[in-house]
Design a protein around this nucleic acid. Structure first.
Lengths: 146, 146
DNA sequence: CTAATATCAGGACAACTGATATAT
DNA sequence: CATATATCAGTTTTCCTGATATTA
């Protein structure tokens, strides 16, 4: 076995390329009513982990508090997130999903009407979707923490 | 089984989030000598498919000719790509990898020193890497064509 | 003349960095 | 005073759209 080129290098190449193209595609689809990738990611986290502050979200998502602040502002403007002052710490604002947002998630409407979801259903079999799902769980390790 | 929420919606959510975080991480790592995702993607395609024009590359990568033009200009400035006028069609410029670039790829140095490659090797077992690789092949279908 | 190629110019967007006000 | 949170302002990056010159 030559073993000169690791599979990791191949995976890295393809993954890098895939991430770029996927982001371009997502942006090209525009978001009339849809959400950007970052916005969706924040909503999912808020739903999973409950109430959080801007800074906590920024740490969790791996971005700067300032960037997260702008992102949150847009979600508040869309009525998907509300902020309440922390009674015990005047610096912080506790963020949580609005009822509208929870209802939307519960119905699955947001996800179902989503371009990427439709694309996945149209392109991959159920078995393949499961396979991809398993791989994504593995890949999430790569981007966690530092 | 309620079956109300499709696995496609779950995959879409995670995939969207993953793509965002991965791109942020890659940018945060900077590129002292490294390449951006788009640049690497173009080089891989040029190596695989041989000589191409700016427009052909743009179509293949799913971006506009103008964007690809700028990307190519940066690669030319780095001495990784050279352009030669097409003798049979004065409008076109045939692009190809320089010898330096081919040598770099052949040695595998570029890929090996890459942050993402190291990260994959450090985080995933060989078996998991193969699993991810298979999933990426499936996902490439999502971003191909329109 | 119509279509394709490439490039110039300007714009949008999401992230970044730096600086600042406020609360602990 | 030192630390943490949040926000204001400006910059960078990467892609976009529109307009133009050139060649087929």
């Amino acid at each position: 076995m030559t073993d000169t080129i690791s599979i990791a290098a191949l995976v890295a190449e393809d993954l890098r390329s895939l991430a770029s193209k996927l982001k371009r595609k997502l942006r090209a689809q525009g978001h009339p009513g849809n959400l950007t990738a970052s916005q969706a990611s924040v909503l999912v986290r808020l739903e999973k982990d409950g109430q959080m502050t801007t800074s906590a979200l920024a740490r969790a998502e791996g971005m700067r508090p300032q960037s997260m602040g702008a992102l949150i502002a847009s979600l508040e403007a869309s009525g998907l997130v509300v902020g309440m002052p922390d009674p015990s710490d005047g610096r912080q604002t506790i963020l949580s999903l609005t009822e509208d947002c929870r209802a939307m998630i519960a119905e699955g409407r947001a996800a179902r009407q989503d371009w990427l979801t439709r694309r996945i259903d149209a392109t991959l079999s159920a078995e393949e979707q499961a396979q991809v799902h398993a791989a994504i769980v593995l890949l999430q390790r790569l981007v966690e923490e530092d």
